[in-house]
Nucleic acid binder design. Sequence first.
DNA 1: TAATGGGTGCACT
DNA 2: AAGTGCACCCATT
Lengths: 714, 714
Amino acid sequence: MVIHQSEQNNNGSGSGVSSSTTSTATSTSSTSSSSTSSAVTATTEDDEDSHAKNTVPSHQHDPILRNEDGSMLTTPQNIPMVISKDQNKLIHLDPVPNFKEKADIKPWLQKIFYPMGIEIVIERSDNTKVVFKCKASKRGRKSRKSSTNGTPNNTTSTFEDTVKECAENFIIHDNKVKTKNNNNDDIPQPPSRVKKKRAVSRFNVCPFRIRATYSLKRHKWSIVVINNTHSHELNFDPNSDEYKKFKAKLREDNDLEAIKKFDELEYRKRSNLPIQTAMIPCDCGMTNEIESFNIVIPNTNPKTSSTTTTKQDITNKKPTPSPKAIPTPTSGSKRTINDLIIKKSDKIVPSVPIPSSAPAVRTNTTEQISLDDIINNYSKIPLKSTSFLNNPDWNINLLSDHNPENNHNNNTINNNTFTNTNNPNQNHLFYNLMNNNSLYNTNNDSSTDIIQAREKIDDEENDDEVGVPLQRDNEDYEYNGTNQIANEYYHNNLDSYNTDHFYKFNGPFDSGNIILTNKYNANNNVNDMNHELLSNNFIDDPLLNESHLNTLNFNTNLGLNINNVLANTTITNNNNFTNDNNTEEDWTNISNNVNTSSANAIHPIPSSDFNLINSNNNIIDLNEIDFTDIFSGGTTTATSNKLPPQTKQDESPLPKSSEQIPMVKNENTSPSLHTTTGEVLSKELKQFIVHLEETTKTLQNDTSPEENVDEEQK
Amino acid sequence: MVIHQSEQNNNGSGSGVSSSTTSTATSTSSTSSSSTSSAVTATTEDDEDSHAKNTVPSHQHDPILRNEDGSMLTTPQNIPMVISKDQNKLIHLDPVPNFKEKADIKPWLQKIFYPMGIEIVIERSDNTKVVFKCKASKRGRKSRKSSTNGTPNNTTSTFEDTVKECAENFIIHDNKVKTKNNNNDDIPQPPSRVKKKRAVSRFNVCPFRIRATYSLKRHKWSIVVINNTHSHELNFDPNSDEYKKFKAKLREDNDLEAIKKFDELEYRKRSNLPIQTAMIPCDCGMTNEIESFNIVIPNTNPKTSSTTTTKQDITNKKPTPSPKAIPTPTSGSKRTINDLIIKKSDKIVPSVPIPSSAPAVRTNTTEQISLDDIINNYSKIPLKSTSFLNNPDWNINLLSDHNPENNHNNNTINNNTFTNTNNPNQNHLFYNLMNNNSLYNTNNDSSTDIIQAREKIDDEENDDEVGVPLQRDNEDYEYNGTNQIANEYYHNNLDSYNTDHFYKFNGPFDSGNIILTNKYNANNNVNDMNHELLSNNFIDDPLLNESHLNTLNFNTNLGLNINNVLANTTITNNNNFTNDNNTEEDWTNISNNVNTSSANAIHPIPSSDFNLINSNNNIIDLNEIDFTDIFSGGTTTATSNKLPPQTKQDESPLPKSSEQIPMVKNENTSPSLHTTTGEVLSKELKQFIVHLEETTKTLQNDTSPEENVDEEQK
DNA sequence: TAATGGGTGCACT
DNA sequence: AAGTGCACCCATT
Ligand SMILES: [Zn+2]
Ligand SMILES: [Zn+2]
């Protein structure tokens, strides 16, 4: 399944990506189309009344498979080509994936139609059908002010314009026979029987439709393009909200292929590069692709380099043209080196100018590599599929000040420390294979930073796909090693709940991960915790005394169990754990959101049966008991409660534990339970235990001089 | 605030409730209206194109307050009257409540407009505005088949009909000045500049609008009726889904006034009785109302009766006519007696024929009263505001076989046993003041049974409003005493999750309530548990071995806390506790959904800090410990675990408690903790406790012979 | 949290 | 190319 690409330059690179086969009033003629549409009412300067028919569908000499009704069949590869043929015939998209949900259809279609400059929206949907149409243009800034003018073949009155517009709408629907007065007798006042349109702007009349229908018999969705013609110019707008959502979903779905494709598309759009509008499948080997390029540590002068080959052979490399002069770095001594790896694959050839003087993969070194340099050298090229094969002691500074939106995605990033200093723009770290890294952001503004530490795949069947391990069940994901994610936000981003500053962990944290958050009055959220979180530390900086609050929103729909959430996890200072429904009451037993320094909770048992209970800033320090000879499972050890320095400990407004429950001295010979102010156990139970302990102590005091610990059997 | 009622007979009682002041093509002329609308295009026999203008607004001689713009002001009492005046002027509804949420507006308006035969829907809304219109009629079964016919003053072509329809639509909106060719230059193909309507059926053209706008300055909603004219006949349809939802919300909100009003309205509708369309406030004392009527135990022959007067005086009683002949009971010996209590109040005069031969309030007796008899005697009259002043040993059988939908609402029902045998129709028990009752349903089909045990109000300020204690905070509600609610469902109602068979408890259950459920393979749900549930027993029938499952869906958003849910509650056999998000995982610690007979959990502590943990069908029987001298709070006593008979106990596949943890004999002199297989405490803690106990026992064995309990101090 | 009117995405029916 | 309930928007003033 090799797909080559045929790129087509659109003439006007300034305003947008236009479908090369759709003729518009302002664009040049399409490359391969003959006008077969009927009743093309040429528009006047006012362009009125022709928007529904001003496309020029072409249909001739195509080798496309067709159904008996003339509708066309597609392959995954030729869909864009077929669609771009611009026909009025039905175009069956076949095969289509086995969509599990109705909502999966739109993204799949968007992947096809966004590159063609078509932004689709749902016109109507239910469980067995989704009808898509073009999104209405939002051009009408002054549409309200617009008013009457001469229509092409009508009078100039507003009324008749209205008439005309209405009539146009109904021409599409009005295919019923005309019966006379067949009103239901129970209708008191039968109005006229012609349907009316709901208010629609003149920018919302495109006849293009895509219909997806679900066959209950075959349990399969089928998709047909119904009116492959448009009343408007096609344009790919990477800045639209809908597109951003679409892109975000790609990231959620870990659709690396599509992300790459659209990153490329965005870059081309922004760079006014030609946009490919059709992908012609072949296997001639002429258009292989660049899959990735390794970033290696540059020497002081980038002279020597050796290309690193992956398991794929380097075949015919089609050099991509450099459409724009790459600005040279301001400092001539910038050390930026990429290594180009070319392999035969069905990827898109990136139009990224790659320097050929990249050195080979680096060996161990302690140098720092500044991605800022690379980014600057290569203008605004997002780094994709880049391997950072660095040593643990390397330091990588993602200084992305100069790049409004950097996507450092799909890289293999191990054993590094990432220090992002973004001011104030976006910086994304997505879908990287990460192990033992530290991600450290220092953002000086309420920027939108998304750090999505992705999983490492360890199973076998995907080992040959290093770099593209995604789109599988979440159970396969792992976040191994000891990773550290830290952010500094200098502003109180109260509106960050749904947008900014979220970490998204899709894989279980095995152990030892640390999330350092919230210096200087920040409000950070950890959202969509889809998996168990085990043995992690949530730590506030104890040296700061500003009010700050960490919120962890656990999506308990996705397997996060109360019992497992905080097993062997240290919670330090002012963390607030909430669940979906925003009722703190439900979580009082695992929250310690009071502004004291010593609100901690430790639970030693990683079973599914325990609950971490610490509702009133109480401490139960199980370290004072040696459970090792008591625990049955044996897999767990008691975890000590790492408190902040004494400075804040003294500020605690809560009564000391001894003020509530009498302390019990720990005895060496038998385990004891040291409760301070704890509510981990009920008061009654603790009192009962205290009673037992005191009784024991009393008895021991009576008997200990004799040291008789003999008769253990009952 | 006394409101009298002026009832108006609508002429045609067969099809619906029509607004008496709205003229239609088929109805008679309106009572008091002068046509002030402009451009009324009279319709021909086909009635085409006139539906938007065929009303005759009236506006003259009204004593209604007006704003300076001519818009009218309303009082809560005269809204229906003002609305029914049918004017084209703006009608300000003022005052309106201080709506806390946007969603509160629609129910409030529905309370006004449903009785007028107007079903409103939201046309458009945002945070500061809600626009309502009439719900589109669903008459158009053959609307597609309908087609062209001559329009009144146009040609007969479909096109021109369409034109006319469109133009009409635009008349409402087309108030913009006409400029020439002010299209944006970036619009590639500017079509004609007149807006179009989205598709609308011919039944959806009513110009009636209500606009609610939120003033940001005054922080207040204001509501204006914009086009008080309709293109259709008005009709109150109590069977519409929207109305049912509206009614359900009234019940949720405990809006007893409105519920009564609409129950009355429904009854009138079903009985083809006249519907009041306006309420004229006055204080003449001419139209007092029946507030309630007591149902008392009839004698064998219903002869003697004495009217029971409440604290309100009986004033002028307006006898209501008996519009239909009430069918006499098949058995002449039916003992059905109601006692009419009439008091001056602002309620609606029910049009219910009341026998005058009701006896006085009963004293103690052991007779059974069959509400079935009463229902049959009074045809389909729902029982409302009925006081059951019975003794605890009475038995009331709600045999509602003959009534498709009985609403036994707003009654005071104490110390009774209700046995419903519904087959298969609905039976509602709403808003009753209930204490120490047993509700027992035996439904032979998957009927829709709603048993809503209502609260008893104990506070002072409402004691004078017995029967109407609602619309207050939930904290005021109480469900005192020992109530028992039992249902038998003989079918597996798998689809009952959102619809059928739900119990709704709005008040806290103080203690001793028992919910007996699930005989014979039933799936019953307890939904929307809005308050704490304390000291209740959820018991499956231990004599049955069919697979059955009880589900309790706790709405934790409304105050139900994990910690409080099951305090002192016995959970017996196959109960499945889930929370909102349907993830059983989150509730494993309080579920015992394995098919064993002995899955029980008891927790003795009604504090907010405990969690009931019973993930593996374990039992901790705290009765084996006498906590009374340990508990500090003193408010709680240990609850015994009432197990089913031994038959199922022996079938438990679980290991006995002694198989896991060695039993500790209870000592008289010191409390002990008897854990069987429990996970209420962690294994480790229990082992620790056992260790302490054993140590204690060992020590006691060593020292007890000497009985030295002296040196207690450390 | 200005006030007011309208377009349109999209799922429910 | 279902119609429509509803809300998230945007536009104008
Ligand atoms: Zn289009
Ligand atoms: Zn209407």
